[in-house]
């Protein structure tokens, strides 16, 4: 048999890999330039050459605050986007995400529990408890999803938001009893203004989840094709499904503990990338991570500029933008079905 060849389209996987590598190089260059520029936005005036002037205020602002802040928001944005796309693939539902599956709220509950049980707690203890509760919350929600017959796609995020509200109610009740109410706010609204050198480094833990996600990218795509296809292709369906949920829960919990929640990011970024570039995770996972980082970067810079010299929390900006895009996505999904 002969291979079909067309001059206009790449026909070997090497050509296609080269094409997607170009897309990746372009988008990461854009993100790198934007990241660099973001270092010079803020209350303290910082010029590019400040890095060479140790012991000035500008130098300290750059090294102690701006650079850690940049790293933190890139890590948080990319890992939440990756968490979202994996949840959507393994549950085969475009509206399951850390925000719409109770994952974030369960993590916040964990932080409150850790603060109650171990008053002199370290970040590590908080993180471990938050990981445990977000895993539990996510798996409970997925079980609920399996139990009921979903008639309309809109039911899934609504159910998830209701589940999240129930978990939140428990959190608020406990926080009220133990006088932690003001603290809850710092975790439910993500902000990078508190990120300083020495206080964000545990966030690097999300890189582990990112690497595992990339290694398993093809398997997540196959699981997203359905159990029939996955089993036929010799993939351990339930293992890959659970692995995906674990990566998503752990990454979400780590981000919530260190910087707080960034609502809707894990839902809207993967959906936009999927519309543009499809669902083959081997190809789109890096793009999704970059787009997530870019989204948080834009939200954070907006928050820094809008009310200078004050800051609007990144989570608030993301919530506003995210809610609008979320509604647009739902309307689109409904018109697609009719």
């Amino acid at each position: 048999m002969t291979t079909s060849t067309r001059d206009d389209a790449p026909t070997t996987s090497r050509d296609r890999r080269a094409r997607s590598r170009r897309t990746l190089i372009v988008s990461s260059s854009v993100l790198a330039i934007a990241s660099l520029l973001s270092l010079f936005v803020g209350v303290v005036n910082v010029a590019p050459w400040s890095i060479f002037e140790a012991d000035t205020d500008a130098y300290r602002a750059l090294v102690i605050a701006r650079i850690p802040r940049l790293i933190a928001l890139l890590l948080a944005g990319s890992s939440l986007a990756v968490a979202g796309v994996i949840m959507q693939q393994v549950t085969r539902n475009r509206f399951v995400s850390p925000t719409t599956a109770g994952t974030v709220e369960s993590a916040v509950l964990g932080i409150v529990l850790a603060t109650m049980w171990f008053p002199a707690n370290s970040l590590l203890v908080r993180m471990l408890v938050a990981i445990a509760t977000s895993l539990l919350g996510t798996f409970v929600f997925i079980r609920i999803l399996r139990r009921i017959r979903i008639v309309d796609i809109i039911v899934v995020p609504l159910l998830g938001l209701m589940f999240a509200a129930v978990v939140s109610a428990i959190t608020v009740f406990l926080a009220y009893r133990y006088d932690l109410l003001q603290l809850v706010d710092t975790w439910t609204t993500g902000s990078f203004s508190r990120v300083l050198r020495g206080r964000y480094e545990p966030l690097y833990a999300v890189l582990i989840g990112g690497v595992v996600a990339y290694v398993f990218a093809a398997r997540f795509t196959v699981v997203g094709m359905g159990e029939n296809f996955a089993v036929n292709l010799g993939i351990n369906y339930h293992f890959v499904l659970n692995l995906g949920l674990v990566i998503a829960s752990v990454n979400t919990a780590v981000v919530v503990v260190v910087v707080g929640a960034i609502p809707f990011l894990g839902l809207i970024v993967p959906n936009v990338i999927s519309m543009w570039a499809g669902d083959n995770l081997q190809r789109t996972l890096p793009l999704t991570a970059l787009a997530g980082a870019g989204f948080v970067l834009v939200c954070d810079v907006l928050g820094r500029v809008v009310r200078r010299p004050y800051e609007i929390p990144t989570g608030t900006i993301a919530g506003i933008v995210g809610a609008v895009v979320f509604i647009a996505l739902i309307l689109r999904a409904r018109t697609d079905r009719t």
């Binding site: 996987s13 693939q89 085969r92 475009r94 093809a218 795509t221 196959v222 997203g224 094709m225 359905g226 029939n228 296809f229 036929n232 292709l233 010799g234 993939i235 999927s274 519309m275 499809g278 669902d279 083959n280």
Partner: peptide
């Protein structure tokens, strides 16, 4: 190789990408 009747698929894949997954094993 098994192809079940329920081929309902929501994944956004090109035909070539879909067929490529046949090589996964």
């Amino acid at each position: 190789a098994v192809l079940r009747q329920d081929t309902h698929m929501t994944s956004r894949l090109s035909v070539r990408e879909l067929v490529s997954f046949g090589r996964f094993p």
